[in-house]
Amino acid sequence: MPRYLQGLRALGGLTLMFASPVVTAQSTPSTAKPALRGESCSVQGLMDQLRQGLGSSSKAYRDYLQAVLREAAVSLPSGELHAAFDRETDPAMVEQLAAALVARSEREAEKDAIQAVARRALEDRDPSVRAATVRAMRRTGALEKTGDMYERLMRDGSPEVRMEAAKNLVEDNAHVYSGYHGPATDTAVNAAAVSTDPKVTATILESLDTRRMGPEAGQKLLGMLGHESADVRRSAALALGSAPAAQMGPAREALVGMYRGERDVGVRKALVQSIAELGFADAVPELRKLRSMDPAMAPEIDAWIRALESGVQEWGLLLREKQRLQQVR
């Protein structure tokens, strides 16, 4: 690192030290130099600092403390960290300690550490603690390492826990796996399929990239097109839009067939979007046929046809082009 950057880092470190409530409380009169005091990096010390810091009005300072604990987790004594996690009952602190254990697992310092977090997410009596431990596993490889945890979380009695689990599945698929890991997609679809909470199911499915979805999960998605909740039907239809090549034919047939009997406008819009996504320019003849069935949907379908006929070859750009065409008067 260049020397002047080291200087900046040192300066910033001092700034943060002075921003810390712990340090300011012990500051000496301005005439005397502050005495340097050695401090060991212990679980208890970090927890005390974190407990105090979580009450700070500065988000940057709170984030900093959380980051310190997660980065330090790799070198902290495992036994002490597990014991602190088992003892803690404050959801905010449980979340941080759980995140530290997950970090140990993800950094491969202690691969099984995540199992203790998963156990608590499933078994703790306090729903706020269960929700906090679920949050701690967000944007990690938890869905590969915790068996059927997500399916079991879908049956949790607390709506908060179920929704946190759904958000994990969404964010993990989008940011950890980027839609390229079939088993991760299948885990999300399986969890959505066993969920009895339509909001949770819809949250999981509506932005799920299914390009690597397995055939069994594909069948489950097709089955969800017949769900009584319009939210679930809409999100299942959207998820089918990115189905892998081998499943495109059945998906397209199911979506077109469903359009004829569907009465909900939101679901119909989702069906049209996914038919467009599955076929690109080849979907235009099918969309023209569907256009005559419901005059109210004509402007929507016209926008799709014009966007598809523009020749744009990337789905993200097509979505933007369709949006632009609808806005232009």
């Binding site: 950057l5 940057a60 984030d63 900093y64 980065e71």
Partner: peptide, 19 residues
Amino acid sequence: KKVFAAVLALAVPSVAAAY
């Protein structure tokens, strides 16, 4: 850029922006 990087390294070493 360097100053921004240094500040980022100081304040939030592992908390990056959303993407």
